[in-house]
Design a protein around this nucleic acid. Structure first.
Lengths: 108, 108
DNA sequence: CTCCGCTACTCGGTGATACCGTATAGTGGT
DNA sequence: ACCACTATACGGTATCACCGAGTAGCGGAG
């Protein structure tokens, strides 16, 4: 599958929110999860920029813990604002994807 | 539904391609179709930038015709490259939306 | 012991895209 | 004469994913 970056705009951040929401985790591991999920070309730098943005926007709680196999990890979990944002993301996704699928099926 | 613009990045162009692919039409009418389809906040300016880009990328054939109710209209139809691009768009959409839905259903 | 590889995060800069506001212009109604 | 609707163009903006280089900790191969 060739370049998906443009189509991921606005959705990748939501995916990261979902991953954090289901389990407290950290940037490097999130990148690996996204890769295994099929977003093979997503690299660390991209995920870290998203995480820093989430932190700046106060949607996550951050805890730094030593790793044992490398530098310390920054663990992220959602706060109330983050959970609200996640819910809004899925509502938008539901809305947009249903309209696009309707267009695809010739719904006009 | 609040602001969808970020989520439409990378998909709105595909939607316009689909609309053009199903019927030869012009910018103003495409905007109205998108609005009726549920993308209520998409305005003319946005559609015209997409159309100019499609033209620049040689994905469409353009014919100018008088209107009778206003200035002349530029009618767009897909050429071979445009049809190919449209097929690629739907393949990408299928790929991305299925992965995101899997993530949503807790597929990890 | 030094180099390499894997883990792990930061940050400045780039390119693509949708959006906004404004301008231009044709037609018809008041 | 003005306004509303139709119709297109264009310069500037914000946001986002991406890229590349840098920093840093740990363990194993040579």
């Amino acid at each position: 599958m060739d370049d998906l970056t443009e189509m991921l705009k606005g959705t990748l951040e939501g995916c990261v929110l979902e991953i954090i929401g289901s389990e407290e985790t950290y940037g490097y591991a999130i990148t690996r999860q996204l890769n295994e999920l099929g977003f093979a070309d997503v690299v660390e730098g991209t995920v870290y920029t998203i995480l820093l943005r989430l932190e700046r926007n106060k949607l996550v709680q951050v805890t730094k813990r030593p790793s044992g196999v490398g530098p310390p990890r920054k663990f992220y979990s959602l706060n109330d604002a983050g959970r609200e944002e996640l819910a809004k993301f899925w509502a938008k996704w539901q809305y947009v994807s249903s309209r696009i699928n309707k267009l695809k099926e010739g719904g006009r």
